[in-house]
Computed example of a mutant assay.
Amino acid sequence: MTAKSVVVLDYGSGNLRSAQRALQRVGASVEVTADAGAAAAADGLVVPGVGAYEACMAGLREIDGERIIAQRVAAGRAVLGVCVGMQILFARGVEFGVETAGCGQWPGAVTGLDAPVIPHMGWNIVKSGAGSALFKGLDASARFYFVHSYAAQRWEGTPEAVLTWATHHVPFLAAVEEGPLAATQFHPEKSGDAGAAILSNWVEGL
């Protein structure tokens, strides 16, 4: 059987090589590139992201990433956002009082976590949504690796979306799955066997 092809979108942000290696370990054929044609043609597109929301959006716009994502989603072709790559899928992000427009695939804002210890860094359990494809076969005690100070803390989108929540003093969205578009606030590529299971489930669904 031919391996599923995955592009990790290179727009100057994210743990590109660690994401590539993690996806290769679960059997995908992976290319790291900013090329729109390759991103459109692949079975799956991974949008990574670390750092500031505003900087990630600036980098994404430089390679016309918003359009690449929008066209794939409109065509029903799989996209997976990771960490800030999840956050930029929402309509806007608010950091240090500055509001930045996001990709707008999902309504709502990404805002700062109101917690005594920031960033939220380390391992945490999640409460996966009923019918989740990403978390299929995973135990409720599975832990995932997070490092972030901001998150989507409310869901304003459609009721059909499968929502997975975590808590760091306050509840926040740890993952969202809606049609071809899925995203995780945690880093599956840094989350050991549980993260590998997430990526394997995603690749299997391509």
Rank of each mutant, 00 (worst) to 15 (best):
G49T: 01
R61H: 08
Y53V: 03
E66S: 13
A36L: 10
I63H: 08
D43Y: 01
E54Q: 12
V47D: 05
A40E: 15
A58M: 03
L60V: 01
D43E: 11
A42S: 15
R67T: 05
A38M: 12
E66T: 05
L60Y: 04
A36R: 13
P48D: 11
G37T: 06
V46W: 14
G65W: 07
E66P: 10
R61W: 02
E66V: 03
Y53A: 10
D64L: 11
A52N: 03
R67K: 09
P48S: 10
A40V: 07
E54C: 05
A55L: 00
E62W: 02
G65E: 11
I68C: 09
V50M: 12
G51I: 03
V46D: 15
A58D: 03
G59I: 03
P48V: 02
I68L: 14
E62N: 10
L45V: 07
A52I: 04
D64N: 14
G59M: 11
A52T: 02
G59K: 11
A52H: 09
G44M: 13
M57Q: 10
G65F: 03
E54K: 12
R61T: 02
A36W: 04
R61N: 11
G49D: 04
E54W: 01
I68T: 08
R61D: 10
G49C: 04
D35C: 12
V50A: 13
D43A: 10
G37E: 14
A39N: 11
P48T: 03
A40G: 13
E54S: 12
A52Y: 01
A58H: 00
A38R: 14
D35W: 06
G51H: 04
V46L: 15
R67F: 01
C56T: 06
A52C: 02
D43Q: 08
G44F: 09
A36K: 07
G37M: 11
V50R: 14
I63V: 12
V46N: 15
R61F: 00
G37D: 13
A42R: 14
A40T: 13
G59P: 06
G51F: 01
Y53C: 08
D64T: 07
D64E: 13
G59W: 04
A36D: 02
G65R: 12
G37K: 09
I63M: 07
V50H: 10
D43G: 08
L45K: 03
A58K: 11
C56F: 04
R61I: 01
I63C: 05
V46E: 14
R67C: 02
R61A: 08
